[in-house]
Write a protein that binds this DNA or RNA. Structure first.
Lengths: 138, 138
DNA sequence: TGGAATTTGGACATCAAGATCTGATTCTCG
DNA sequence: CGAGAATCAGATCTTGATGTCCAAATTCCA
């Protein structure tokens, strides 16, 4: 449904939002989010390029959020690493096919839009303040 | 967003719903849906296993819908070839992580559910009767 | 009645892309 | 200068997508 890369990016961003003081090296983020460190490093680089996190090298370096958690939607994050693609044009050749396939792709795009909407309307801050609402299974 | 396989399956099913008389060999379906024939053959085999289409070998053989179009939802089709996976349990280890990751996955599953809902509430028949509603771009 | 033509059913082989790990390089703080 | 960290370039592994071939079933016709 959503790429592994996007899942990892979301976990890392939630962790960074949870711990806004100071920078966190990839090893620490990997440990807390249970993401393979080698790969997470690459994912974080993409997030840096997308300006969603900022990085700092050297001793006491690491990663931190590039913007306040309230201004970072889940959609920003997902699109930063593996963008959700809307269906804008009919994937088949144009006019010569029946219009039912167009109807199909119209519905398809509606579904994607609905999915995308959930991501657009939720920020990292929303997740933080919702703490306790969803109790983890024991 | 949705696997290539599922996209192909949907196209083929729409074609079969459009042409309910007689059976259609994979070559004809491939031609009308612009799906690579070799692969489509495999996809159709999966649809047969899922009881969504019935097949017949030999001369004049081919594929046809396994149920009336009004009783085939898009979700049935997608789940027949590459199921949509809901997030039922937290993908991380259990109790020792913060509950914010749980909140994340809760939202994630809501988004998937919303996507899934679009598919569940649309049948092949819905697509057919909607003909003309969405004009293909010229 | 039997064989040729057609078509599905399966088993492999190939190809591309995503996911993962490793090592060398560059930066920065103390 | 030296240790800790990001950065970057490859190498590897897995999986989904795709193509190819042959066997099994079915129809049709001589």
């Amino acid at each position: 449904m959503i790429s592994q890369t996007a899942e990892y990016a979301l976990r890392a961003m939630v962790f960074l939002a949870e711990n806004p003081e100071g920078a966190h090296p990839v090893s620490r983020i990997a440990q807390h989010t249970q993401v393979p460190a080698g790969y997470l490093s690459k994912v974080l680089q993409n997030l840096v390029k997308a300006k969603l996190v900022v990085s700092q090298r050297g001793l006491k370096g690491g990663f931190r959020l590039g913007r306040p958690a309230a201004e970072l939607s889940l959609l920003d994050i997902v699109n930063g690493v593996s963008p959700i693609e809307r269906i804008t044009a009919c994937p088949l050749g144009l006019a010569h096919h029946s219009s039912r396939l167009c109807a199909l792709h119209h519905r398809l795009d509606e579904a994607i839009g609905s999915f995308e909407g959930c991501f657009r309307t939720t920020t990292l801050a929303d997740l933080l303040e919702g703490q306790g609402t969803f109790t983890p299974p024991a």
